[in-house]
Simulated assay, not measured.
Amino acid sequence: MPRSEPVFPANRHALYETHGYSAAIRSGDLLFVSGQVGTREDGTPEPDFAKQVDLAFENLKAVLEAAGCTLSDIVDVTSFHTDPESQLETVLAAKTRAFPAAPYPNWTAIGVNWLSGFDFEIKVIARIPTD
């Protein structure tokens, strides 16, 4: 059985240390990425929602890159939204920029009432390229 190993991006933000979790765990050829939020380097939320979503995707890309992956390696997405109805247009625009053409990953969006000061979070499972 493969051992699980933590993965961190080069410019890891303070939340990993503050809350004691790994950005991602590599297990075999799979990468399980923890929920990424629109945090600044000091761990505080970006107050502008559109920028917060863009930062969450940038943080996601940095974690994927640290494991040798890209957005095209993602197979499963779960996103969390504090106000899905009013946030949908902004999130869909970011989603379209991240995944402009098929094949698209499967995606589950969940409305929540608390994200520790954030309004959007995205977690994924990716297959790590073996070439």
Rank of each mutant, 00 (worst) to 15 (best):
V7A: 11
V7S: 05
V7W: 14
V7K: 11
F8G: 03
F8P: 05
F8E: 01
P9F: 14
P9C: 03
P9T: 09
P9L: 01
P9Y: 06
N11Q: 13
N11W: 09
R12H: 09
R12W: 02
R12Q: 05
H13C: 07
H13K: 05
H13F: 12
A14S: 00
A14G: 01
A14L: 09
L15C: 07
L15G: 04
Y16G: 09
Y16D: 02
Y16C: 05
E17M: 07
E17W: 11
E17H: 07
T18S: 07
T18I: 15
T18P: 00
H19I: 05
H19D: 00
H19C: 00
H19R: 14
G20K: 14
G20W: 07
Y21L: 12
Y21V: 05
Y21E: 01
Y21F: 15
Y21I: 09
S22W: 08
S22H: 15
S22L: 03
A24C: 08
I25K: 02
I25W: 13
R26G: 06
R26K: 11
R26D: 01
S27A: 08
S27M: 11
D29I: 09
L30M: 03
L31Y: 04
L31M: 10
L31N: 10
F32M: 00
F32W: 04
V33R: 02
S34F: 05
S34V: 11
G35L: 10
G35D: 04
G35R: 15
G35P: 12
Q36T: 08
Q36E: 13
Q36P: 10
V37M: 14
V37I: 06
V37W: 00
V37R: 08
G38K: 05
G38T: 03
G38M: 01
G38Q: 02
R40E: 02
R40P: 02
E41H: 11
E41D: 14
D42E: 01
D42V: 07
G43E: 00
G43F: 11
T44R: 08
T44F: 08
P45Q: 06
P47F: 04
P47S: 12
P47A: 04
D48N: 06
F49E: 07
A50Q: 06
A50W: 11
A50H: 13
Q52G: 15
V53P: 07
D54F: 10
L55I: 05
L55P: 01
L55A: 12
L55C: 04
A56I: 02
A56C: 14
F57M: 11
E58I: 13
E58Q: 15
N59M: 02
N59P: 00
N59R: 13
N59F: 06
K61A: 13
A62F: 12
A62K: 11
L64T: 13
L64D: 00
L64A: 02
E65T: 15
A66V: 08
A67E: 06
A67C: 06
G68L: 14
G68P: 04
C69N: 14
C69I: 12
C69Q: 13
C69S: 12
T70P: 12
T70H: 10
T70F: 10
L71K: 07
L71F: 15
L71M: 10
L71W: 01
L71R: 05
S72R: 14
S72Y: 11
S72G: 01
D73W: 10
